[in-house]
Each structure stands twice: as C-alpha cells, then as structure tokens.
Design a protein around this nucleic acid. Structure first.
Length: 190
DNA sequence: GCTGCGATTATC
DNA sequence: ATAATCGCAGCG
C-alpha cells in the first residue's frame, strides 16, 4: 500500500531507516530502496539547507514531509530525496542505492542505450547502485522536484518486504562537513 | 557579471 | 587518481 503523510512527517532519522525495503514507483518503473542518508538543516553542515538557509534550491526541503526534492550535482547527475518532518523544517532523505524491480528493460536503455540482453556483468551490477545512477535509470529529472509523493505520478509503497538486518554508518562524500561528516546517518542492507 | 565548488560517475 | 560539466551561492 502507498505510504501516507503520517509516514513522512516524522523524525528524519526514523523515516530514513524505515524507508529501507520500501518500493519507489515512478511511471512504470519500480525500485526497492536499499540505502538512504538523512540530512537535517538545523544541525547538519552537510545539508544544503544548513542553518535553515532558504534559497531557491532549498525551499523544497522545507515543505511538509512527503514531497520530492531533486537537485543537479556536478552539472551532470540528478539526486532524488524524500522531504521529511512537518512544514517549515528543512530536512530530507537521499536515496543512495536501490534494486530494480519493474520496467528493468527500459532502465538498461536509459543508462547504457542498449537492451538488457547484451549488458555485461559490470553494467548489470551498476544499473542503479548510486544516487545519480538510479535517477538516470528511472528517468528522474528536475521536473520531479517538488512533486508530492501522495499523488499519482510518483509515490512510495510498502509491499510487506522487511530486510533481514540493516546497518548504520557515516555518510558518503561529505568530507567538507566538519563534525557532521561523522554523524551515523546512513542506513542500508545487503 | 565573475568565481569556485559540489549529497557523482566513468574511466585511467 | 582525475576529468566531465553547470546551477547556484557569494561577492560587493
């Protein structure tokens, strides 16, 4: 069943952990969430909205939980986030790794421009295992930014899958974030 | 207006 | 280890 507003408008760390195993649905694409990272603007130097800074880019992070926050990184790749907490609190959860479930054939075309049948082992392994890769695979771009996950274009659902065990660790590629770089705000399972 | 820099990825 | 590539924030 589709996750409702009450799921998203909670503590960001809880939402980040409980998103593991849930299914993101976008058009005909379906992927299962395997790895997330939490970003909390009030105390987190790694967050775009650190110090509750509202800009044209970060304003989406302050919407009520249950919206999509999509940004362009390195001028080349999009990253997909889920906004959390009540309206006015700048926070979001980044999707860092997912397993492909539905419309996988199209994902190979989107990523490599080739049919699934001729993909090599390396390409299969790297289809959706990164924040930029998963967006390219399922066609997420700037137009998704700000969309509600409670409507019918994009949403997350629970199909009663529960990971056997989950792990916690430091977030990736935020060495500039001083003390925040050591916050254990990354959640994942194998 | 100009500058420097990323919540990344592919390739060497 | 490094190039690719551009929106955005900061400056003044």
């Amino acid at each position: 069943m589709k996750l409702t507003k009450d799921f998203y408008t909670r503590d960001t760390l809880i939402v980040a952990k409980e998103l593991l195993g849930k299914v993101l649905v976008f058009g005909d694409y379906k992927v299962r969430i395997k790895e997330t990272e939490a970003y909390i603007g009030s105390i987190d130097k790694a967050a775009h909205c650190y110090n509750n800074k509202v800009t044209n880019r970060t304003q989406v992070m302050f919407l009520e939980g249950g919206h999509a926050y999509v940004y362009l990184i390195y001028g080349m790749y999009y990253c997909f986030n889920i906004v959390t907490e009540k309206s006015g609190i700048g926070s979001a959860v980044l999707l860092r790794n997912v397993d492909p479930i539905g419309n996988i054939a199209k994902m190979f075309v989107n990523r490599y421009g080739i049919p699934r049948e001729i993909a090599n082992k390396y390409q299969i392994k790297n289809l959706t295992n990164g924040p930029g890769k998963l967006c390219q695979a399922i066609g997420i771009n700037k137009e998704v930014n700000g969309l509600s996950l409670l409507n019918d274009r994009i949403w997350i659902e629970d199909d009663n899958y529960t990971p056997a065990s989950t792990s916690t660790g430091k977030r990736i590629n935020i060495d500039y974030a001083e003390e925040a770089k050591d916050f254990p705000w990354r959640f994942y399972y194998e």
